[in-house]
């Protein structure tokens, strides 16, 4: 299963240039993904987790500028020219949040799959149809021929997400980035899709980068978890440790905010305050404004990541004294 790092994100900063100003979506993010592992990126909306996923799968929008490096099998993906980038597209594939808009509404699922296969493997149309059918079988869609002929609006959300997973796997990827693939689905379908992703990960020996805001899903799917807040990775470690023994105050609050089915509480706990404006993020800890440990004489200089155990990192001033 494991074997060295496959993907290394080093000091990645991503800025969106918009009419309202420069949005600093990801700031100085570093992440190491080992071959065959599944890692979760957890954070609330606007924390930059999707942007990080898009950057890794080489599909940042045109108005985004990325600095730093994303090293995949020794190659810095950010330094590729468009032609080389096309070669790496599909190596790192992606499943998206909303299955209803993942496919073009005017073309059949088959047409999408065939085009992906034709360009990736230079196979004939007929060969592509055979492979497409095989892919749909792999994602456990019944009646593959009907699905191939179906237009996106003719399939349910769950079926569409399965088809989208088939499309993502059509490129025979080594890394699969799944950007909240279950958020738009209802609960029973969610668990089926999660199960499918887990099975496929094992069968195809995929390296999985799972983006979610749902800590429950994180604990179910991934062995490692990185928590993002306001464009910064604030904590990273094995999923169990991060969830059971959170070091960063933000993670701790996040874990407490998860509603429990068994324990009945008076009030759901929440985190007071709002995300900082990413056009002008605070220089120091982005969570300082909402953090209960913030004091009047708080140090607003940038926070450094602190190693807090094997494979465990945290960016919080509380721990800077532990091991500087």
């Amino acid at each position: 299963m494991s074997g060295g790092s496959l993907l290394k994100v080093l000091g990645l900063t991503i800025n969106y240039y918009t009419l309202e100003g420069v949005v600093k979506a990801v700031r100085n993010a570093s992440l190491c993904v080992n071959r065959g592992e599944s890692i979760c990126i957890v954070g609330e909306s606007g924390s930059g987790k999707s942007t990080l996923g898009l950057a890794i799968s080489l599909s940042l929008p045109r108005n985004a500028v990325a600095e730093g490096s994303i090293i995949y099998e020794g190659v810095d993906l950010l330094k590729l020219n468009p032609l080389e980038r096309q070669k790496y597209r599909g190596e790192i594939s992606m499943v998206f949040q909303d299955p209803a808009t993942t496919f073009s509404p005017l073309f059949t699922i088959g047409e999408h799959l065939i085009d992906i296969l034709r360009h990736r493997f230079r196979v004939s149309r007929d060969e592509a149809v055979v492979r497409a059918r095989e892919l749909l079988r792999k994602v456990q869609l019944p009646d593959q021929d009907r699905v191939l002929r179906a237009y996106p609006h003719e399939l349910s959300g769950g079926m569409l997400q399965r088809a989208a997973i088939a499309a993502a796997l059509a490129t025979d990827p080594k890394v699969l980035v799944a950007d909240e693939p279950t958020t738009m689905l209802d609960v029973t379908t969610q668990s089926q899709i999660l199960e499918l992703i887990k099975v496929l990960k094992r069968e195809l020996d995929l390296t999985l980068l799972f983006i979610t805001h749902n800590l429950g899903i994180a604990s179910e799917v991934c062995n490692r978890t990185a928590v993002m807040y306001a464009g910064v990775i604030v904590e990273e470690g094995s999923t169990d440790e991060v969830l059971l023994n959170p070091l960063h105050p933000y993670t701790a609050k996040l874990v407490k905010a998860v509603p429990s089915l068994t324990k009945r509480r008076e009030r759901l706990s929440h985190i007071p305050g709002m995300l900082p404006d990413l056009r002008n993020p605070p220089a120091g800890c982005p969570f300082a404004e909402r953090c209960e440990f913030t004091t009047h004489y708080f140090d607003y200089s940038p926070v450094k990541h602190v190693e807090a155990g094997p494979g465990r990192r945290v960016a919080c001033i509380l721990y800077s004294g532990v091991k500087a």
């Binding site: 599909s59 597209r89 909303d98 808009t101 073009s104 992906i116 360009h119 490129t171």
Partner: peptide, 22 residues
């Protein structure tokens, strides 16, 4: 700006085919 343009891009369909077909 539709999502499917981005997904086809990620899945390795060349730019010209995305533009002139889809």
């Amino acid at each position: 700006n539709e999502n499917f343009i981005r997904s086809l891009e990620v899945w390795g369909v060349p730019q010209r085919e995305i533009l002139f077909k889809y």
